[in-house]
Write a protein that binds this DNA or RNA. Structure first.
Length: 316
DNA sequence: CGCTTTTGACCAGCGC
DNA sequence: GCGCTGGTCAAAAGCG
């Protein structure tokens, strides 16, 4: 799917013609001639109309600015996407080697029955069953612990088996396994005493600059610190007063933009722009939101309908 | 002094 | 039953 083919912000006509519906309305002159009793009311209406026109022009200008902001974000996304594609194509071969090397003789023997469950993952990932646990305890009816595996590239000279994921870990053992001369370190989550999560860290036998971290279980406590990367597939945030949430699922990215809430004031919109530009909001998050917005073919229609509906509501 | 790391010993599962 | 292997325990050492 080519993103640029979907992205056409110029066709996203956010600069609606706010004055158009005014042309269709009866002119003030005609109404004044119709009855003199309503003269005072027409004066008030004229003031309201001019205020409305001013408001609509301001909204149009804001829409134009938002369009430009969206265009910039989409350009950044395209650039990052190209970099990601380039990096991914480089790493795929390495990961395949890791996957092959990680299969020990014991696993190979037992994996005849469950080899189809093996997964090849880049970054935080999950598998329905653990290839190691299933070989160790094949009689278990259910897998108690949630297994995920993370590959981290580090300096080959760095002998410390430390994977910075934001959690606090206590090392409780180290073992040299048969299939890998590099020792395997065993960690337990020390942030919460009752947290059942365990972590195994071992260098890849093929590429010692890559550290393989295997997580077992789920944390039963909030994240102690902000991690470098998010392992979850769902993200949700509220930017200022704009109710906006994004999520990425297996079925694809979805976005919930609550336009039913009251329209933010000018100060709130300015605050929102400041927050988007502010460094406390990660750039990747803004770019992700922009990409999700522009990827959604229904977004343009929904956004245009919401704006036009707002205008019609005000005109009534 | 308290916490973390190290490391040898111990235990359990599995195959033969 | 025995040996191999991965995983865990716990005492000692290290560190701030």
């Amino acid at each position: 799917m080519e993103f640029t083919s979907l992205l056409n912000t110029t066709s996203l006509d956010l600069n609606v013609k706010p004055l158009r519906f005014l042309d269709d309305a009866p002119s003030p002159k005609q109404e004044l001639e119709s009855t003199s009793i309503e003269l005072g009311r027409h004066v008030t209406m004229r003031q309201e109309r001019s205020a409305l026109i001013e408001e609509l022009n301001r909204v149009s200008a804001e829409n134009k600015k938002l369009t430009e902001l969206l265009t910039v974000m989409c350009e950044n996304y395209t650039e990052l996407r190209n970099q990601l594609m380039e990096q991914t194509s480089k790493n795929l071969g390495v990961v395949d080697n890791i996957n092959t090397a990680a299969s020990s003789k014991r696993k190979a023997e037992s994996s005849i029955n469950n080899n189809n469950n093996r997964t090849t993952n880049i970054g935080p990932s999950e598998s329905s069953s653990s290839d190691e646990d299933s070989s160790k305890k094949p009689r278990e009816e259910h897998i108690k612990a949630k297994i995920s595996r993370v590959y981290v590239r580090t300096e080959a000279s760095d002998t410390s088996l430390i994977v910075k994921d934001g959690y606090q870990w206590r090392k409780y053992g180290q073992k040299v396994t048969r299939d890998n001369p590099c020792p395997r370190a065993y960690f337990k989550c020390s942030f919460a005493p009752t947290c059942p999560v365990k972590k195994k860290v071992q260098r890849s036998v093929e590429d010692q600059s890559i550290v393989v971290a295997t997580y077992e279980g789920e944390h039963n406590h909030p994240h102690p610190t902000k991690p470098e990367t998010t392992s979850g597939s769902n993200r949700s945030l509220t930017l200022g007063t704009v109710p906006c949430s994004t999520s990425i699922s297996s079925s694809g990215p979805t976005i919930t933009l609550d336009l039913t809430k009251p329209k933010p004031s000018h100060d709130e919109m300015t605050s929102l722009r400041d927050k988007i530009d502010a460094p406390e909001i990660p750039k990747y998050l803004v770019e992700q939101m922009a990409s999700i917005l522009t990827k959604d073919p229904n977004f343009k229609a929904a956004f245009a309908a919401a704006i036009s509906g707002k205008f019609l509501q005000q005109s009534n």
